[in-house]
Computed example of a mutant assay.
Amino acid sequence: MDKDEHLRHELDEFKKEKERIRNIVGEIGGRNNKQHKIVNFIFLILIGILLMLGVVLQKITLFLTLEIVVLLGIFKIIWMFYESQRASHFQFWILNSLEFKLNEIERRVKRIEKTLKEEKE
């Protein structure tokens, strides 16, 4: 039973760590956060206002309205690419750090194995 409890404890710790990492990546840009929702809402409001002014109220020409709406859409796509790049860079940084740590652990294990072999002889 003691071994099972130890394994369950390790599993719980792993789940907590996994959730913590997921939250950190989410804050950087891995999923929708408050900033993304605000920016999406602003773009949606601007496009809605432009379409209302151009199509419904006919205050500006339809062609100009469509051009501005397309330009706002392009800005939104550029912003999405930037956020995606930022998240990818952070994830790469995490993976690179993990690889560095694994390589260091591997060197230590080899050194320990070498020391144990020398002691046996």
Results as ranks from 00 to 15, higher is better:
Arg8Val: 01
Glu10His: 12
Leu7Asn: 02
Arg20Ala: 11
Leu71Phe: 11
Leu51Trp: 02
Phe90Gly: 01
Leu46Thr: 03
Asn103His: 12
Arg22Pro: 01
Glu83Lys: 14
Phe14His: 13
His89Leu: 10
Glu10Leu: 15
Ile28Glu: 04
Trp93Phe: 14
Lys37Met: 15
Gln35Val: 13
Thr115Val: 10
Asn40His: 06
Lys101Cys: 00
Glu13Met: 06
Lys110Tyr: 06
Lys76Phe: 00
Phe100Gly: 02
Lys101Val: 00
Phe43Leu: 08
Val39Arg: 06
His36Phe: 14
Lys110Leu: 07
Glu19Asn: 09
Lys34Leu: 14
Ile105Tyr: 02
Asn103Ala: 11
Lys110Trp: 06
Met1Asp: 09
Val109Leu: 15
Arg31Gly: 12
Leu102Asn: 09
Arg86Phe: 02
Gly48Met: 05
Phe75Leu: 11
Phe14Cys: 09
Glu99His: 05
Arg31Trp: 12
Phe41Gly: 06
Glu27Pro: 04
Phe14Leu: 15
Leu71Met: 12
Asp2Ile: 08
Glu5Met: 13
Arg31Pro: 04
Asn103Arg: 05
Gln91Asp: 04
Val109His: 00
Glu10Met: 15
Phe75Arg: 01
Lys114Phe: 11
Ile45Val: 13
Leu11Val: 05
Gly48Tyr: 07
Glu118Arg: 13
Gly26Pro: 03
Glu27Ile: 03
Ile112Phe: 05
Leu116Cys: 06
His89Val: 10
Arg111Gln: 10
Ile24Ala: 03
Met1Gln: 05
Ser88Val: 05
Glu106Asp: 12
